[in-house]
């Protein structure tokens, strides 16, 4: 029996985040405390990681004004995780290969959403959805014990769902030519990425799912082999080809 269920919106990171939490043990007050802590943490993440704020640590790092060792431990952690994501994606995700220097924006959303899940769990939340403008981190499934049903929208037809994924725990991230236009570049060539129209990646870790979705927009079908790596055994993707209205998954 659900004791409390709350939904909240948090405006940050240049977008609006949506949180949906439920618990059989915690009451509304406790869940609200968790949501408040999440909100504060997400604002903090914006202060550290926003490439749009010249005084953020990441902007100062990019400008060479501070060294990595002087940065907040969270930024050092994301740096290391981005190195891993670059390695495991064979360079198709490369936040160092960006005009202006290291830009972890393609990793941070999913990574921070996972942190938000941990915060909410600490306050007794059991069924959690954090939706960061279309990239989701999920925990505990639905209150009835079934998985979350997450629809993925068509890349161009905004009101059409093209695929539904059942997810109990984990993250699902989509990259492509959605609202912000084609903002992804091929690290190998520096040109606008042409690999796929849209790539959805799902797996246990939000940051890595986020990064791999970007990687697959760059790589397209050439990147299918990445998901055969043992390190990515728990991950899969669903990719809409650049041409021909065809979608595929590597496994």
């Amino acid at each position: 029996m659900v004791r409390a269920r709350l939904q909240a919106e948090i405006e940050t990171w240049g977008t609006i985040l949506f949180i949906d939490v439920a618990s059989t043990t915690a009451g509304e007050d406790e869940l609200n405390t968790g949501i408040d802590e999440c909100r504060k943490y997400f604002y903090f993440v914006d202060e550290v990681f926003s490439t749009y704020k010249p005084e953020s640590e990441v902007s100062r790092l990019r400008a060479g004004k501070i060294k990595l060792e002087e940065c907040h431990p969270d930024l050092q952690e994301v740096w290391a995780l981005c190195e891993y994501a670059r390695e495991v994606s064979d360079g198709y995700f490369d936040p160092w290969c960006v005009v202006g220097g290291f830009d972890p924006s393609g990793y941070v959303k999913g990574w921070a959403a996972d942190k938000g899940i941990a915060i909410l769990k600490k306050h007794g939340a059991e069924n959690i959805q954090i939706n960061c403008a279309g990239d989701l981190s999920l925990a505990g499934g639905l209150e009835n014990g079934l998985p979350w049903n997450i629809g993925i929208r068509h890349p161009e037809e905004a009101h059409t769902v093209v695929k539904i994924f059942d997810i109990m725990d984990g993250a699902i991230a989509t990259s492509g030519t959605y609202e912000r236009g084609s903002h992804i570049r091929d690290p190998h060539t520096g040109l606008i990425a042409l690999g796929a129209r849209s790539a959805t990646v799902y797996g246990p870790d939000g940051g890595l799912a986020d990064a791999l979705a970007t990687a697959m927009v760059v790589a397209g079908r050439d990147g299918a082999y990445l998901f055969m790596k043992p390190e990515l055994e728990a991950y899969n993707c669903w990719v809409i080809d650049r041409h021909g209205d065809v979608a595929w998954s590597p496994k």
């Binding site: 949506f18 959805q129 403008a133 997450i150 929208r153 492509g176 959605y178």
Partner: peptide, 9 residues
């Protein structure tokens, strides 16, 4: 559907 991916808010 309880959530929608690939979308803004």
């Amino acid at each position: 559907i309880q959530g929608v991916g690939g979308a803004s808010y």
